[in-house]
Design a protein around this nucleic acid. Structure first.
Lengths: 245, 245
DNA sequence: ATGCCTCAAAGGTCAGACCATTAATCATTA
DNA sequence: TAATGATTAATGGTCTGACCTTTGAGGCAT
């Protein structure tokens, strides 16, 4: 039928089809509210059903809008509790970066290589920017490793935290995010090949590993960037030997 | 009621609550399909109703999953037609810049820093592994840059391809993937701040840029890894000056 | 106070319906 | 025959109302 097509269409100023999808419109409204600080981080949004009535849209559309914001890391839903504005919004990059990497077929060799690149320079940066608090946190993880020697599962976890804490010390969130993902993938792979017999004695390997970590920590404490990078490089190469196959 | 709570819970190996939301599970499945090239860019997904039946989920959940992928720029829905896999590695932000505010200065700085880390070492690796075919492709992009001087849009595109082609030359898909994403984000940001007046003459800047790129190519051709790394580092630092602010 | 129970409200999911848009098909016309 | 217009089936987009599990708060008994 197209009712308005029957009127004389004067052709003057026909809107260039500015129709945006409904849920996108909602996203825009909410982003606007948040960017104008009407909704501050930590705030709780009205319930979905409430928002539906207020915005005059169905719950599907509303939920798709919320989903968008959640993917961007702007809001965060907790079942049974409510939906909240994320404390640190702008997580969008990390989120999509994460999914993006998921798109890749993960080859262990490539992962190790990339990890070496990133983490050696991460150590360099960290040595320059590390705070007393960071050092403390790193020491904590190292103590955890010492305490859990002989328990590979636990040890690996502290190992992971050791490296991530250093990454955090660079104050570069992108870097942290990337390393976290790469190491995460490797972690899974490592666990999978834990049972396999190692060429070197596990005990000896752990002792060596501890020494290497200690060396990295030393360099960080002294703020010796080059030294930290060197120690990290050696550590990663050394610890990757068992994985190279 | 909690049926299983009534059994003797032996506490051995209780899963750390690994339950993920249903739609996130779907996202993972689809991402997996795409990453394994079962679904290639440009392909059309089965209709939503079809996917529902095949995955055994309701349409809401399915749609929320699709929404996530759409926000990330991985798929693209066209009403009345179907949903398609984005012929991608390009559409990252296109949508997102509308919601603005997502890229703050700090993040851009982090991106540049991370890019410098990755790309300098990428040049190093590429110099060792580059093939004749790679060289040819790189030369191609360089010619494109020369030809499109004075047309910032086009020039930027060839610039991007230049760097990505080098990344591809490392034969490390993870590396390529990461650089592609990082550079993609920066690209959008650069475009956004294209109109702003530059301190240096655009012409002069372009000339310099060409020289820098040529220098990198030279090093790659000669297989001089250190030299390539050095040239790349200088280039990135130089070209980032206008962005540092 | 402490712990347990109940219950209302929240987000998550489902099923079925309707709408607007699109592309393909078929019928009409010049 | 070729161009044009109408029909139609399928698609994504939206709405509704229902049910589920989880959560936190308030009341109850200990």
């Amino acid at each position: 039928m197209k009712a308005q097509a029957q009127e004389k269409l004067t052709m003057k100023e026909m809107k260039p089809d500015t129709r945006t999808s409904l849920s996108d419109g909602i996203v825009e409204q909410l982003v606007d509210l948040i960017s104008r600080d009407v909704l501050k981080p930590g705030d709780r949004l009205p319930s979905e059903r409430e928002l539906c009535k207020r915005l005059g849209v169905g719950r599907s559309s509303l939920r798709e809008a919320l989903r968008s914001l959640a993917v961007m890391g702007i809001i965060d839903g907790r079942v049974g509790d409510g939906t909240f504005v994320s404390n640190s919004n702008k997580r969008y990059l990390e989120k999509t970066l994460q999914w993006g990497l998921l798109l890749d077929r993960k080859k262990v060799q490539d992962l190790i290589e990339t990890r070496l690149m990133l983490e050696s320079q991460t150590a360099f940066l960290a040595a320059q920017r590390v705070t007393a608090k960071n050092i403390e946190a790193i020491e904590e993880t190292l103590r955890g490793m010492e305490a859990s020697i002989g328990q590979p599962e636990k040890y690996l976890e502290f190992d992971l935290q050791f490296h991530l804490t250093i990454a955090r010390a660079t104050q570069n969130s992108i870097l942290y995010s990337l390393l976290s993902m790469i190491r995460g993938y490797l972690q899974e792979w490592i666990k999978g090949s834990l049972a396999e017999p190692s060429t070197t004695q596990t005990e000896t390997r752990a002792e060596l590993s501890l020494l290497e970590h200690q060396k990295i920590l030393d360099a960080l404490q002294k703020g010796e960037a080059d030294q930290a990078q060197q120690a990290m490089t050696e550590h990663i190469l050394s610890s990757s030997i068992d994985l190279q196959r």
